[in-house]
Design a protein around this nucleic acid. Structure first.
Lengths: 241, 241
DNA sequence: ACTAGGTTTCGAACACGTTCAAAACCTTTC
DNA sequence: GAAAGGTTTTGAACGTGTTCGAAACCTAGT
């Protein structure tokens, strides 16, 4: 891979990198816990940094010592999603080798993990959608989470009894991740009871995706598969000039 | 429809509805003009409401009398995009009946119209991505712009010499609009010289879309086409419970 | 001309995200 | 234990989006 990792700031005094002392780690946790609770109870906008700090028993300035902005407090939620989904998938992947079931399960697992935060997830993904924002799913900062997610999909495919065409094999995990991104985008806007519409979307699209994957080896479709793979490679990462 | 439209405030004294007096309309224009200029020069974040007001020669409070938030000042830009694109397409559609050319031209027209605002478009689309935001492309408030855009694509198809399968005919304009939304999303994140990567994306995907449309009538693909159309109908508008 | 009722304009005041210089605290070294 | 040097914590202060009550302005009716 030629990914131009730009030397990740070795000597940065950022307390976000790793826990220096146990105590500071505890403070950090208090703050993020207070924040997530308040976000759930009052929504993102309704929660002030003063309230977060007070609820965590620290000063405002201290909260900013650990998190450089209000938005950054959300990374905690973000990380949680990915790990929760992965955890749920371990069991799931052991239980079935059917591609569609695995895909469906993985998406539903994400949904379950995200449910409690639905209200403020809108605010989150919106700001995350900003190009320069470190929370953007495409950004350098969230590449660990992204890579983990893509790896999950690679495993999903690997353990399923489907034969993917050569052209698409390498790219499919990334494509499925993009597909998930689309589902999430829909979910964010979904205000139906129990996010029923998103579930509907999943129930309907999983078979379609599954069918597409199978079709991708068909002679008439093959050129499309190849072009798709090429494209993803070509455009990977719009932010890099 | 059971959409619980909460009686759209018939007697609302909102000056946004229509121009009451010529003078007030002039003031409104001054403000939006000043805002767009400053946005271009200083970026969105770099522009304060105080600066906008001062540059328009009015008070801060007055600016808020016309626009209920800083974000709302952006609707002007939004509207401009759609009309500019439509204008460019009149000529274009007269010139060619080839589906791919027309599609490519329409997308490039949008790109040209949007180019000067690329920097702050990120901020715009990000906040617009928020579910409850009136600037959201799915919201009630921007349904005129959306409908206009979809109509443009309907015309694009209508005047092209392609035969679209029955299952997809009614839904295709909406699908193309979604496709454009995807391109825009990519563009927003594209910081390459002259947004070259977005142009690359267009050059590569237009033939693919074109091919897909042609393939959609194939017996093996037909079920997929039908499912797609069904899905769009089923899920249209995630915000309505 | 004067008044009444609506529309438009004003700018001080407010709330909240964020910054910063100084203090408190902790660990290590002598 | 005292000093030195780093880490953590504090809260007052700042900038900016937004609100609000009051003033200025306009139009129509008498």
């Amino acid at each position: 891979m030629t990914t131009p990792e730009p030397t990740p700031d070795a000597a940065a005094p950022d307390p976000a990198d790793g826990p220096r002392t146990p105590k500071s780690e505890r403070t950090r946790q208090q703050i993020v816990a207070a924040a997530l609770t308040l976000f759930r109870e009052q929504g993102y906008q309704g929660t002030t940094m003063r309230a977060v700090a007070a609820s965590a028993g620290v000063s405002v300035g201290n909260a900013y010592y650990y998190f450089s902005s209000k938005e950054e407090l959300i990374q905690g939620f973000y990380d949680q999603m990915v790990t929760d989904q992965a955890a749920a998938c371990v069991e799931l992947f052991a239980a079935s080798t059917d591609f569609a079931s695995r895909l469906r399960g993985a998406l539903l697992a994400w949904l379950d993990a995200a449910e409690p935060y639905h209200e403020f997830a809108g605010r989150f993904f919106a700001t995350a959608a900003q190009p320069d924002n470190p929370l953007s799913p495409f950004s350098q900062a969230s590449s660990p989470a992204r890579d983990a997610s893509i790896a999950l999909y690679r495993e999903l495919i690997g353990g399923a009894r489907v034969t993917v065409g050569d052209e698409l094999a390498a790219t499919l995990p990334e494509l499925l991740w993009l597909y998930q991104l689309g589902v999430v985008l829909y979910w964010v806007h979904d205000s139906s009871e129990g996010t029923a519409r998103t579930r509907l979307l999943i129930e309907h699209t999983v078979p379609m995706v599954s069918r597409l994957v199978r079709l991708s080896r068909l002679p008439v479709i093959r050129p499309l598969s190849r072009q798709t793979a090429e494209l993803v490679g070509l455009l990977r990462g719009p932010r890099a000039g």
